[in-house]
Design a protein around this nucleic acid. Structure first.
Lengths: 119, 119
DNA sequence: CTAATCGTCAAGTGACCACTTAACTATCTG
DNA sequence: CAGATAGTTAAGTGGTCACTTGACGATTAG
């Protein structure tokens, strides 16, 4: 049993749209690999690989019964990810509430050589 | 201004431990690139690249003032990610609560050719 | 038994990722 | 001004990612 999915693996698993679609599908109940594959524009083999990523990310379990592999969400799936996000959010929410936007403030005061690094 | 960070980019940004460390650091307040780099075993150049990833992920803003680029968390940083996770979690929490573990149940009943696909 | 179905495995491919080095541009300091 | 400081840029490298194809094993259906 894969118990120790790292945050790295979990977030990585979540960073792909196809995999998120599969998770959304699974939220409606367990599904076979082919069922997961059906709406996706890729081969079965590719989907199997995605399932593996989801498993090492600790998001999904699967079990093979006859020739069908059935996948289901793990109950504790998002625990780690959500915990981390939650911790950070409250931490910096507090901070941001408190001292607002240091950047904008200082920028205002002495606005000279400015450059916002955004594309 | 980068307004539209996709979930892909956000989760991707979160999937790296160094970047998460940088975020944790930033939760304690704004920091220059070198300050972010200090505890990390990599070159400044590498850190700059991580900052870019964090920016396109919509997690961080930065502004250059003189020769120092100051980075700060975005207030709405984790909104998207958390919303998605939250939605899914409640969705499948409900499901899992309701029908428990279909897999285990069926497996119990007819346990024959079983194989849990885990490393 | 024969076919189709469902999935697995291995190898290959092009794109992207996390880094490095090195040369270079500001900016601030003595 | 000279030199240190802070960051930027570009090019390159090895590794991983998201796929594909194709050959194969196992299970179920006609």
């Amino acid at each position: 049993m894969r118990v120790a999915a790292t945050l790295n693996q979990t977030f990585h698993a979540l960073s792909d749209a196809s995999r998120r679609r599969m998770l959304e599908r699974l939220a409606d109940g367990p599904a076979s690999v082919s069922e997961l594959a059906a709406p996706l524009p890729m081969t079965l083999a590719a989907v199997v690989q995605h399932v593996q990523v989801l498993e090492t990310g600790g998001l999904v379990t699967s079990r093979k019964r006859g020739r069908v592999r059935t996948c289901a969400l793990r109950d504790d799936a998002l625990a780690g990810a959500e915990r981390w996000l939650g911790d950070r959010r409250t931490a910096w929410q507090r901070r941001l509430d408190r001292l607002g936007d240091v950047l904008d403030a200082t920028a205002d005061a002495t606005a000279t050589a400015d450059e916002t690094a955004e594309t």
